[in-house]
Amino acid sequence: MAAGGDHGSPDSYRSPLASRYASPEMCFVFSDRYKFRTWRQLWLWLAEAEQTLGLPITDEQIQEMKSNLENIDFKMAAEEEKRLRHDVMAHVHTFGHCCPKAAGIIHLGATSCYVGDNTDLIILRNALDLLLPKLARVISRLADFAKERASLPTLGFTHFQPAQLTTVGKRCCLWIQDLCMDLQNLKRVRDDLRFRGVKGTTGTQASFLQLFEGDDHKVEQLDKMVTEKAGFKRAFIITGQTYTRKVDIEVLSVLASLGASVHKICTDIRLLANLKEMEEPFEKQQIGSSAMPYKRNPMRSERCCSLARHLMTLVMDPLQTASVQWFERTLDDSANRRICLAEAFLTADTILNTLQNISEGLVVYPKVIERRIRQELPFMATENIIMAMVKAGGSRQDCHEKIRVLSQQAASVVKQEGGDNDLIERIQVDAYFSPIHSQLDHLLDPSSFTGRASQQVQRFLEEEVYPLLKPYESVMKVKAELCL
């Protein structure tokens, strides 16, 4: 049975990233139509530049190519590739079939990587351009969430054990800070992308030097003109047959890092959902379990974690691919890159769409948070109580021993009897502590235990987050809708 299948058929496997999760716009960027249309555009740009620099290419040939950029006979191309065992030459023939007058000058002087690699770089750039505003929107939604809850005390956790208090907004800023680093890295790697350009079979530009009869300047002009037509500021000066596969490492490393950030955020949300302090959106008709109707599973956060793990592992592909590119190139890269580049971007696209949807509907339960604080705060307040007693004339050592005994009794009630923490009640009825009984409410005010959390939130948002989001103001209103 021949390899390949009808990918629109229910009898043929289709990647869930495309069929179930990723956005239509990201799927289109990695589609065959987008790819092969870009090949034709690159052939047109090459012909236009070659004509401008004096090669015998007519206006009629150029116009014929322009008129057929979208006229792609995919069936013919597939048949040609089956016959020739070469995808680029299959599309040269297919393009030439609908451009008979231009057929002889299509791909003039070029090698397969002229269309293959340059198209990949265009796709990487455009895919990054799709991700950047999506990530900015996630940051914006979380920034709104953090600002609104900047002063809401909550129990902090280290080692997932109760620690000092923080605020809900401050905790959210930990998430935002990681995503801001990801946004900066995505922008950097996007701006650092260079075009492969017009380089020939081993990167020496020998074929173009021959076409222009040894004119170095025209060869350099050709490279520059096509690079500018493709919208790049610069091209690699040095290439082998391909652009260095280190570029793929750079791009997928940034995406993998984004995956790590999203995994951490969504894990926190899942843990908070278990504590009943916070939940992701839950639709009115949504079913959490087929057997347990009360369940409210954090399905979206779980999906993000599941896909983020996949995204983090994909960076190993370009690392290994770059390491086995012998001399000017081997074909070890080809099949692998067809999979890992598309999957990385479709996965990143999915987790950003999902995280935006989550961040637009996060639900906080202040009463649950308050109750958990009441359970733990008495123990945390013991040092403040000791200091207040010393100020009232008591002995630190005597007070410490009193607190120690009462704390152990209260802990026994919590752990052995399943009761509430009654340390404060014990202190309130103990005559030894009568000098500070009137101060206990103040000493137990949760806001006095959150330090500068709310001020940190305000400063972080104003100095770091809002300036970073400013270039994306025009796209901030787009909502994230999930079908599944």
Rank of each mutant, 00 (worst) to 15 (best):
L272F: 06
A150Q: 10
T450L: 05
R196H: 14
D120M: 05
D73S: 09
T321D: 03
D445M: 13
L468C: 14
K391F: 01
V465W: 03
R149L: 08
G288R: 04
C113E: 07
R188M: 07
K147A: 12
L346S: 10
V478L: 14
L252K: 05
L362S: 08
Q177Y: 13
T313P: 13
A235P: 14
E302K: 04
F236W: 12
S323C: 07
G156L: 00
C399I: 10
L174V: 13
D349L: 04
H263G: 08
L331R: 04
F282L: 14
I139S: 10
S9F: 15
L211D: 06
L258Q: 06
T239G: 00
D144C: 14
L132V: 13
L193M: 14
E462Q: 11
K477W: 08
K147Y: 12
L193A: 10
D430A: 09
G214E: 13
W39H: 08
I436D: 04
C173G: 08
K187D: 11
Y243L: 07
L443V: 15
R404V: 07
P298D: 00
E81S: 00
I386E: 02
S359D: 14
E280T: 04
M476H: 15
E360K: 04
K187S: 12
E148M: 08
W175M: 05
R459T: 12
Q408T: 12
K35I: 10
K229C: 06
V262Q: 04
Y466N: 09
P133Q: 11
R426T: 01
A322F: 10
G203S: 01
V219G: 03
F449Q: 05
T167G: 02
Q458C: 15
H107I: 00
E463Q: 11
S334F: 02
D32W: 07
G394N: 09
L341C: 15
Y365L: 09
P378C: 04
G214W: 11
N357P: 03
R194P: 12
I287D: 02
R190A: 08
N336R: 03
T204N: 10
R37L: 14
E280A: 05
E80N: 11
S306R: 01
E64V: 11
I436N: 04
G169M: 06
R396D: 01
R300D: 04
I237Q: 07
C27W: 09
V262I: 09
V138A: 13
D120W: 07
L55V: 10
R196K: 10
G259W: 04
Q439Y: 14
R309N: 09
T330N: 05
I237D: 05
I123Y: 01
E148L: 11
A273G: 15
A102F: 03
S412P: 06
Q408C: 12
C172K: 02
N297P: 03
